[in-house]
């Protein structure tokens, strides 16, 4: 009996020794919010070394630069400004700070460049008799060139939609896929559309993830393949129109389309955004978004700062004055050759 009781005592002692896994929530002070944000980016952001190579300030120096600007007496607006300034050092459109009053952002990737897209011109080309398949607007232009506009990969698209679109456009001599001003959304929809432009499985890029808190703690990059769709696939030449506002999932879509043999990328360089964003938060409840998983192209090159088109084209003032979209017109001429 004694041995049994000893065993029970040992068991209860082990229970008592079981340690807690916890972290005390830090108090909501400007200093704690700053420290938490800096640590989140320090341990989870995925482009530290690459951004340093591209001329960004090392993250330790960012701390030294901005920490003195934080003090207990500052207002929320002042703290928000300091934190946003700190985050903008990363030059990353996927890095945002969200408060109830504002969204901290770095949008220089498109704000510092020509828009290369005009709403009024776009409306003029679409007219009124275009079709809408979920998030896709499409029509047949006068010269029998198919035109697809996909303005956001946040708008869902199904295989049934794409079958209908491809079937409707099947007799066209070429196809323009316009993703200008598409700032991203769901990767699945981007891949679903790209899968209509290949007849075989193609290596389109690589993806990795962080395995620890160090700036260089990454997994071995895994290959990403584009699988051909089981539905109606496009078998003629196609042009993808891009501008600097093509970001995130759209950047990935352009990366995938670039590997398809009958596809030409035309327009301006894309905006980039190749890091899959994660979210976290600060003690005061502000949410932060940041790039967490790097994605590369098929040559294992970074595409964080965008993808160059095969053919560079910009909107010209002359064409705009004539109510012509230079990029669409160039694509039409290219497809008619």
């Amino acid at each position: 009996m004694k041995s049994h009781l000893l065993c029970l005592y040992a068991f209860l002692l082990a229970l008592a020794c079981t340690s807690c896994i916890r972290e005390e929530n830090p108090d909501d002070t400007p200093a704690n919010n700053f420290e938490t944000l800096w640590r989140i980016i320090d341990t989870q952001y995925c482009f530290h070394d690459y951004k340093e190579q591209e001329g960004c300030l090392p993250w330790d120096e960012v701390y030294a630069k901005y920490r003195p600007r934080v003090h207990d007496g500052m207002t929320d607006a002042q703290l928000f400004e300091v934190l946003c300034d700190m985050l903008s050092e990363l030059r990353d459109g996927h890095v945002n700070l969200y408060s109830a009053a504002d969204v901290g952002r770095y949008w220089s990737w498109h704000e510092d460049y020509p828009a290369n897209f005009s709403d009024s011109l776009h409306r003029a080309y679409l007219g009124t008799n275009y079709r809408i398949a979920s998030g896709i607007y499409y029509k047949i232009l006068d010269d029998n060139i198919g035109y697809i506009y996909y303005g956001s990969f946040s708008s869902a698209i199904g295989d049934g939609n794409l079958d209908e679109v491809m079937h409707y456009l099947r007799l066209c001599n070429g196809l323009i896929v316009d993703v200008r001003n598409n700032s991203g959304g769901t990767l699945t929809y981007a891949e679903r559309l790209a899968a209509r432009f290949t007849n075989e499985k193609r290596l389109v890029g690589y993806i990795a993830h962080k395995t620890g808190t160090g700036h260089n703690d990454f997994s071995t990059p895994e290959a990403e393949y584009l699988e051909p769709s089981d539905g109606v696939r496009w078998q003629k030449r196609a042009v993808v129109l891009t501008n600097r506002s093509c970001y995130s999932a759209t950047n990935t879509f352009v990366r995938d389309m670039r590997e398809c043999p009958l596809v030409t990328i035309m327009g301006d360089r894309t905006g980039g955004g190749s890091g899959l964003p994660f979210s976290s938060e600060l003690p005061n409840g502000w949410s932060v978004r940041f790039s967490a998983c790097p994605m590369y192209d098929a040559d294992m090159q970074q595409i964080e700062f965008g993808i160059e088109p095969d053919i560079s084209v910009s909107l010209t003032q002359e064409d705009m004055a004539r109510n012509k979209d230079t990029m669409i017109e160039t694509a039409r001429d290219f497809l008619k050759q």
């Binding site: 989870q44 995925c46 993830h209 962080k210 395995t211 620890g212 895994e222 990403e224 967490a292 998983c293």
Partner: peptide, 12 residues
């Protein structure tokens, strides 16, 4: 998941 691994990557 691993430290920074996304469910999207696991779905691949």
């Amino acid at each position: 998941p691993r430290y920074g691994q996304s469910y999207y990557e696991m779905s691949l």
